[in-house]
Nucleic acid binder design. Structure first.
Length: 163
DNA sequence: GCCAACGTTGGC
DNA sequence: GCCAACGTTGGC
């Protein structure tokens, strides 16, 4: 049986977590772009690898009060070799990685906007089931995850731009 | 600070 | 290849 796969240009949506104490949306607004380095989980890495330029990602603040989605960013470079894997003095050094055989790829993201209010985890739990949105699942530790189009659009409706 | 969830490591 | 021990994430 043959399937005709129609390849269409489409935007994929993602959610990416960071602790604001380490690197928050304010840091990204200041820097405009950043390499999303330091992810050392294979499932998260595989999602990072599948991101394409133009994809949109929600910036999620974790390990803070309240946790939640705080803004938007866009993928501006894909398949970026994570430079932190080569730094022997850094927290993310991977001695098994070499420049010719890097183990960790990531993306470069660009600031789009900060939401006027945090879309808290509690709000997300009210609106979405764990099957719809993985981040609301209890005990979820994945720091990069895909977001269904329908869910992304609903989140965007909750998020007027700041100012 | 506690602890549930869960990914990773390593002994066997 | 199993699985107990351990370490980390991250909400609360």
């Amino acid at each position: 049986m043959h399937l005709i796969v129609r390849v269409k240009d489409r935007v994929n949506y993602w959610l990416m977590k960071s602790e604001p104490e380490v690197y928050g949306i304010g840091n990204l607004e200041r820097d405009r772009t950043t390499i999303w380095d330091g992810v050392r989980n294979y499932q998260a890495r595989n999602f990072l690898k599948s991101m394409q330029v133009g994809d949109v990602a929600f910036f999620y603040h974790s390990n803070t009060n309240p946790p939640g989605i705080v803004g938007l960013m866009q993928i501006v470079a894909a398949q970026v070799v994570d430079p932190s894997q080569f730094d022997p003095d850094g927290d993310y050094y991977d001695p098994k990685s070499t420049p010719t055989a890097p183990r960790w790829h990531t993306v470069k993201v660009e600031f789009v906007r900060t939401f006027s209010n945090v879309i808290t985890l509690a709000t997300l739990r009210d609106r979405f089931t764990p099957a719809e949105l993985l981040v609301v699942k209890q005990g979820n530790r994945l720091s990069v995850m895909p977001i269904l189009d329908r869910v992304a659009e609903e989140i965007l409706e909750l998020s007027p731009a700041k100012g």
